[in-house]
Computed example of a mutant assay.
Amino acid sequence: MKKIFLAINLILIVSCNKNKEADKKAFSFTENTIEHITVNPRNEIKEPDYTLYYKEAQQYCKRNNLNQNKFILIDLSIHSGLKRFFVYDFKESKIIKSYTVSHGCGDNDWGATMSKEDAPISNEFDSHCSSIGKFVILDRGVSQWGIKVNYILQGKDKTNSHARSRAIVLHSWDAISSAEVYPKGSPEGWGCPAVSNESMKEIDEILKQNSKVLMWIIKP
């Protein structure tokens, strides 16, 4: 009888160990599976080809005696939760920095993300919209937002000719994340291209070393 009892206990112990090993394997598989299927938001969109914009920007800068080292391209057709503010190096022929950036809220609530997939565009006063077109980045000034630094933007096209009168400037905003937040959007302001505080620190260093930089805001 004692031998039978010991045999039963041995079977139960072996069975428990097997179940534990199976649980470990299942957990390990689940972890690996979750890690494997984690979605990279950049895989969900087709990467735009900006080659023609780079070429036109370089020619524009040469014709208008603007900075021929760097220029900034902002693509408002990209979801606002993704990086869409690009610093392009003419000499290296590549993007050297990219950041998230806000756009104007238009008729939506300030600070919301209601137009994260379709930024409203306007050059009109009190529209609270972003304007597209070529801008020249001018004087460095003091801002009430973020790291307290801004840059005046002079609109050079019919689509952004009121930018300076509308007080559209480049500045940072505490509400903007340095990391991509997709599928969430970046909070929307009143038309200024606003970046995170950490991003603005880097951009500020670039702009202090490069005057009269072209900023081209597009929405293809």
Rank of each mutant, 00 (worst) to 15 (best):
A175D: 05
W173H: 11
S186G: 03
K18S: 14
G104M: 11
L207A: 03
N69C: 02
E35L: 10
N69D: 09
N65C: 07
M200R: 04
A26T: 07
Q58M: 14
E202Y: 01
K2A: 12
S127V: 04
S102K: 00
G106H: 07
N123M: 13
E31K: 07
S122H: 08
F86H: 05
N9H: 00
I168W: 04
F29G: 04
K91P: 00
L10W: 00
G191D: 03
L73E: 02
C16V: 15
I152D: 13
I72S: 13
G133A: 13
I168M: 10
L138V: 05
Q209L: 11
W216V: 05
A119M: 08
P187A: 08
S80I: 12
W173Y: 10
W216N: 06
Y151T: 08
P120S: 03
W190M: 12
H171K: 11
I121N: 07
Y50M: 10
S196D: 04
K2R: 10
W216E: 02
S143L: 03
I217V: 14
A119G: 03
K2I: 12
K97V: 01
I217P: 02
L138C: 08
A179I: 12
I72H: 10
I176N: 04
T51L: 15
K219T: 11
N123C: 12
Y50D: 10
M215V: 13
P183W: 09
A163D: 06
D89H: 05
E180H: 08
T38L: 13
I45T: 15
I4C: 09
E202K: 09
S80A: 14
I34K: 09
I13K: 04
Q209Y: 04
K158G: 10
K46L: 12
D139F: 00
E47T: 15
F71E: 09
F135M: 07
S131Y: 09
G191T: 05
D126F: 13
S130P: 02
V101C: 14
Y99F: 15
A119E: 02
V149C: 08
I4A: 14
N150G: 03
D89K: 02
A194I: 02
H36V: 03
S172K: 01
V149T: 14
I132P: 00
K83R: 15
I152S: 13
G111R: 00
V136N: 06
S127M: 04
N40T: 07
S93N: 14
A163H: 08
I78K: 10
L12F: 06
F29L: 13
S80K: 07
G189C: 09
S98A: 11
E124S: 15
E117D: 15
G155D: 03
Y50T: 07
K62C: 00
P187I: 03
A119C: 15
I34S: 01
F135D: 01
E21Y: 14
N160L: 06
K2V: 08
H171G: 04
K208E: 09
L82R: 14
T30M: 08
P48A: 06
G106V: 05
I95V: 14
I217D: 03
E44T: 10
M114T: 14
E47V: 11
E47L: 14
K18E: 11
V136G: 01
Q154W: 02
I176L: 10
Y60C: 01
K201C: 07
K24S: 11
L6S: 11
I11W: 11
I13N: 04
I168E: 06
K55I: 12
P48C: 06
A26M: 11
A119R: 07
S130G: 11
K91S: 09
G106I: 10
P187V: 06
